[in-house]
Amino acid sequence: MSDIAEESPFRRFLSEFAASKIALGGLIVFTIIALAAIFANWIGPQNPYDLAQLDIMDGRLPPGSKSGAGYTYLLGTDDQGRDMFSGMLFGLRISLAVGVGSAIFAACVGTTLGLLAAFFGRRTDAIIMRVVDLQLSFPSILVALMILAVLGKSVMNVVLALVIVDWAGYARNVRGIAMVERKREYIEAAACLALPWRRIMFGHLLPNCLPPLIVIATQQVARAIALEATLSFLGLGVPITSPSLGLLIANGYQYMLSGKYWISFYPGIALLVTIVSINLVGDHLRDVLNPRLKR
């Protein structure tokens, strides 16, 4: 009896999510990637940013070569003699931090503005949504490039650029969802109980908008990681001292056709696997959380 009584919507959701093998696989892969990125210091044989550990003589060694210090370069080295495997782990850390961080910030900003627009309507709605339209009418890569060109290269500036690019998508989506929820009787009931508007908005409206929002957020994390990689590849993203996956790919790009494929290839695979695993999770989340798609 007690477990029926305690059955929360969250638990139902967990059991439904676990029913799909592919999504569960995606989640497991993503967890491994995230753990590898977090514990990069302990997993990687080398700290690629510690110049004392690098040997320029080891530059551009193919995968499986032995290093002077005795360990194996599993995935080869780049032109500075950095171990690609270690470099990728540290690069993943930057990529994930930037992607997840910017997605969370953008979600907070976009959700708040979207809720305000839906809740108050009229002029508030008009002003916020016209800004959103303006924002969405520019290609996101162009806006990000402009912001970074003005602010200069740094990890925080990349996060800021991604937030400025991405918040509008959240705002538009959240507004749409919230407009539907706002018409429901439980919101009228909350108004009838004279609850303060902040409480109705964040305590009643927001929790009921969360399921689709989680789906959007997952997909936006993948998008942000890809966009950051693009920016870094173009040389306007993170600085050379904290290379992300995109920058690693850019570093090896010029050697691609000279047979030294591993410098770009393995970071590219890591980027691909990361984005695919996040998208698998996101797609299945959408199936589980959207009642209209349920069989």
Partner: peptide, 14 residues
């Protein structure tokens, strides 16, 4: 206070 028509829509499901 008001009692609503639809007992499914008038209670916050969360």
């Amino acid at each position: 206070q008001m009692i609503f028509q639809d007992p499914y829509a008038s209670l916050n499901p969360r």
